[in-house]
Design a protein around this nucleic acid. Sequence first.
DNA 1: AGCACGCCGACT
DNA 2: GTCGGCGTGCTC
Length: 714
Amino acid sequence: MANYCEVIFPLPLFQTFLYRLPEEMTGKAWVGSRVVAPLGQRKLIGYVLEIKNDRPEPGFRVKEIIDCLDDKPIWSESFIKFILALSDFSLSPPGLFMRLSEPPSRKQKLELKVRLTEKGQQALTSGKLKGRKQDLLSLLADRQLSPLYLKRKLGIKEINPYLKSLEENGFIEIKERVWKSRVEKNVQKANPRQLSLPVRPEGESEAEKKMLEKLVRRENDSFLLSGSQKKRQKLLAKLIDFACQDNGLVLVLVPEIQRLEKWRKFSDSLTSPHILWHSQLTEKEKSENWALAVSGEVRVVFGTRSALFLPVEPLSLIIIDEEQDDLYYQTEGPVFDARAAAEIRAKIDNSLVIFSSGCPGISRYYHHREKGTLINLGEEKPSYNLSFSRMGIGQVIKKELKEDLGRQLATESQSFFFVNRKGYAGYLFCPSCGFVARCQKCRIALSLKKKNGELTCGYCGEISQALEQCPVCGKKLRPGRIRGSQYLKEQLSETFPEQAVEVLEEGLGDTRIRQIARKVRSGKTKLLVGTEYAIDHLPEGLFSLVVLINPENSLNLPDFRASERTFATIYKLLELVKNDTGSKVVAVVTGPEPEVIRQALSRNYEIFFEQEIDYRNLLNYPPFSCLVEVNLKAGSLRNSARRSRQLLEKLRADFPALEIIGPRITRQMWRREKKEIKLFLRLISQEQLAELLVLLKEFRQKRPSPHLAVRIWK
DNA sequence: AGCACGCCGACT
DNA sequence: GTCGGCGTGCTC
């Protein structure tokens, strides 16, 4: 009786492949273990999803498995179920998720080395070969090299046809070997001892009682926790403690590595074994933590979205901190939303998901309120002093705040200036015809460096000399001002020449960012300018003055979530303010101060929510309709465009009444190699969504390599 | 994804 | 002529 198995590969494919297990390997391959198998001309590492004994009668030749790599399964059946369900929901290939989930210490690769044969040696010395083939052989004269190195060295787009023909002629030899790092130590499965009976925490509100009930009974559900950070963390600590004592495994997710700091104090005080899991751990830390996690000893994992792929025993509790953060949506590699993934995993493991945020997403807040699973712990009244200013920024600094700042600089106090425009100082425009100097390639306004009169493109980095006259009407060009971080820095430096002003924003490089963060922490830097990016990299409660420069700007972004996002940014920003009555928050606005800004500054989520939900209702946005965001990405704009046309055709044929918004080219496409096209589909009913997802899935599976990702807003 | 196969323009 | 770039279809 032969044995067969279904294998999936870490490729952008949705199908599995059937293989025969050679006799000596029957009983050595497991569901959830890895094998080496031939696929086309290649040999690849694949993951066994199913083992079956029935004799298949397929219309193709069944090949044999070459090797088994694991002596026990890595993934449990329920974990595989999770991966498949996630793939189904996100339309990303399951094999790519499996790859994210491979053990770090045993990351195995098939490595190729190219070597010259004797015949090749002769051919090289005889000099019969010409051109690139000769070049290739001479590179190999005294050493073995990898195909990738050869490809780069020779500057050829496709190296394999070369190698194939040379190998056929017998000039070279291609050797492969599996990289097997040290044999995995057999980690003892720890059987955690229950020290005492878990003390069941008491709930206060109805929803809180319901949540605790579910946790005790280990039932699946999801809850939303809102209110002040302090109150939320206190309740969460209680829950984690309970789950640990009850032998459960807890996963605490944060949107970004920096945010783990917020849990530091708690994790340090935790008596149960716990680990960190994120992409910036060293290889050593990764393998150590992995071993600990799968051993069953660990009770709590603190990590970023990648921690969801640790193949650990059933989770009893998943906490999603700062649930509104967009970083939970992964756009690179297999696309997925960690929040949705957590819910999928929780359903399979029968665990509880708790979303936590001071400013939750509007839709989530709405749905949980309707469902009765909202736990609002209440906001604490901020103690800082809030004011608005309608002067220009220069004026604000030089007049309104000068005295304040001067006084602060004399003490230990620090100030933070928040801008939502990145680094560039100004642009060049024609006052009479409105011409703006733009980058030829990117069509984005070039930024003008004041010092040397150079124009640079903020996206592609191209530098050119500033023009004197307008190329359209010949009038003299004038510099215009975008009140960006650099402009602000100049203004501050002019007013306080003896003070060092630092700018913290995206794209400075890790070392520079750490350096600035250190200077700020130590109190050396008293005046700091920063964008949204800076917020995550600064400690809480540090600044006694925070100035927001035109925070209303981001309300005008072409996004139905513009208000929600602006609110969340300001909310997060305010965590940097020192909590004492002497602290000041000043918002510089150009027009009348918008309500959203006022509510965000006074941390009034509920009032903001009520207004926002009315607006969503009026304009038929989520949660009152369902928006499906579709992203298409191919190697070139032409290809993306063709793909989008195909999709539109299919959509119009199958869903004639569907409202299609777009397609449009995304902003990022100007700087990325891959060209991206985005469109939105508005749906009214849930049934329609299911049907649409089936269509999109089919569309994607038929041609899986051009990227297609969906994001559902409902 | 990567590989074969087939088509097509452009060079030794 | 054939080399190499590119689109299409397939991989158990």
